[in-house]
Each structure stands twice: as C-alpha cells, then as structure tokens.
C-alpha cells in the first residue's frame, strides 16, 4: 500500500508537464472590485526578471558611451548588427528601420526568456501557447492593419499570386487566404511547441537517467551514457533557444514587409 502510494506520488512529481504549471506566488482576491483575482504568478515573475535582465545587459553594454568596446558591448553590438541586417534585408533598407526597436526588443525578449527556461528549476515562459499566440496574433493583425492603412483595398492583391491563370484564381485566392490566416497560428505555435518539446525531452531523459543511476554501482556507470545525451540535448536546446528567437523575428519582419510592399 505504502509502495503504491509513494510510486503514485513520484509519478505526480515526475510528470514532464508539471514544470509548465502556472502557480500563484502572491495573490489578492478583491470582492469589492468585481471579484478580481490579482496575482503575481511564476510566469509573471520570470517575465519580470527577464525584462530586468534585458535592461541591465543593454545598459551595461553601452559602456558609459566609451568609443572602445568592452566584452559586454561587443556582444550586444554584434546582436544589434545581426538584428539590423535582418530588418534591413527583410523589410526595407530605408523605411524598414522604424520597426527596428520593436524587432530588437522582440528578439531579446524571446531570447532571454528562452535562455531563462534553460536554467534548472526555473520556468520556461515561452513554452506557454497563450503568450506566444498573443504575440503572433498581435504581429499579424498589426501587419494587416499596416497594409490596409498604406494600400487600402489594394491590400487584397496580396492574396493573388503573380501571373496566375484566371480560371485558377478563386481557388488560389482561397488557398492564399487560408495560408495568411495560418500565419497567426504557425508563428506562435512554432516557438511554444519547440520549447515545450525540448523541455519535456530533457525532463524525461533526466528521470530515466536518475532511475538507472540510483539502482546500483554498475547501473551508475551505465547511466553515464544517457547522461551524456542529456548534456548533448542541453547544448541543442541552447541552440534552439537562439534559433527560434531568430526565426520568430525573421518571420515577423517578413510579415511586416508583406503588409508594406505586397509581395
């Protein structure tokens, strides 16, 4: 009976999805104000830490306005140059630059939150679909409003591929329209699904390795093999954290470009 109970307890603790649970850290129930439940949750806490970290790193990297760079400023200046080249290549070398502060913030926000998620016992904020969908829907709707503002009803020409035969036009417009709507989902889903999958994989592998290594001396040695896989996958996850932030930003720039230039 005791064994069953402890096994069930263990299984609860070892659920790979438990790491994504949102918990209240501080909460206030306000029966006076429409029963609002105002709370600081773990995701809010880690997002705030990320924002603070972002600002501190950026302030450190300005290097007191000295012309000669230090290590912080070299790293941030190269990040600046990378995002700047993405914005100028994807959107427009001249007019695209007004979107640079937004794209830069978005990149560092996603990157820092992805990296914070890689710290053991912390929380991966970007694995939450609501967060990434909120970003992706806002970006795509914003780009659509931008397109309508600039081109009016001509914006719908975005749905007509160049040089398509007239007979195929209704079908192609329908397909293009569906693919335009799918951008909302795909942009957010890609980021959250990648982060969720990576964290779950690491969690499952860690549980497996722990079980093997705690079973005896021979198994401890045997467990070094899956342990090496965990180290390798952690490196892969670090790379994915950077790549996903970059992919998100590149696609955001390309959607803004579509709204501005219509293909």
């Amino acid at each position: 009976m005791y064994t069953n109970f402890s096994a069930a307890g263990c299984m609860d603790n070892l659920s790979p999805l438990s790491q994504f649970e949102v918990r209240d850290l501080i909460n206030i129930d306000t029966p006076v104000l429409l029963n609002l439940h105002i709370s600081i949750t773990n995701i809010g806490f880690y997002l705030t830490i990320g924002a603070f970290f972002l600002l501190v790193v950026n302030l450190l990297s300005t290097n007191y306005n000295k012309l000669v760079s230090n290590n912080w400023s070299i790293s941030m200046e190269s990040l600046y140059a990378t995002i700047h080249s993405i914005v100028t290549n994807q959107i427009n070398p001249k007019n695209g630059q007004i979107y640079f502060p937004f794209i830069y913030t978005l990149f560092i926000f996603i990157l820092i939150n992805n990296l914070i998620g890689m710290v053991p016992y912390s929380f991966a904020s970007t694995s939450h679909f609501v967060l990434t969908f909120a970003l992706s829907f806002t970006i795509v709707i914003g780009a659509t409003i931008l397109g309508f503002q600039k081109h009016g009803l001509k914006f719908f020409s975005l749905l007509v591929p160049a040089g398509c035969p007239l007979g195929l036009l209704p079908l192609l417009v329908l397909i293009e329209f569906i693919s335009y709507l799918a951008r909302n989902i795909s942009l957010g889903l890609r980021l959250a699904a990648n982060i969720t999958a990576g964290h779950m994989l690491l969690h499952i592998l860690s549980g497996f390795t722990y079980t093997i290594m705690s079973s005896g001396f021979v198994f401890f040695l045997l467990g070094l093999i899956p342990l090496s896989f965990i180290v390798a996958f952690s490196g892969l996850e670090l790379a994915i954290a950077v790549i996903q932030a970059q992919v998100f930003v590149v696609l955001t720039s390309s959607y803004i470009k579509d709204g501005l230039d219509l293909h």
């Binding site: 999805l17 438990s18 994504f20 649970e21 949102v22 709370s39 949750t41 995701i43 809010g44 997002l47 705030t48 990320g50 924002a51 913030t105 978005l106 926000f109 694995s127 939450h128 679909f129 609501v130 967060l131 909120a134 970003l135 806002t138 959250a192 969720t196």
Partner: peptide, 19 residues
C-alpha cells in the same frame, strides 16, 4: 498546464506590459 484558461489574462497582461 499551459492550457488552463484561469491564468490566460494574467499571462497576456504581463507579456504586453513588459514588451
């Protein structure tokens, strides 16, 4: 756990405020 709707407003508020 990501799909618990109770915390959706909290997450979105924090995200947009911080960005």
């Amino acid at each position: 756990p990501q799909l618990v709707p109770f915390y959706f407003v909290n997450e979105i508020t924090f995200t947009f405020a911080i960005i």
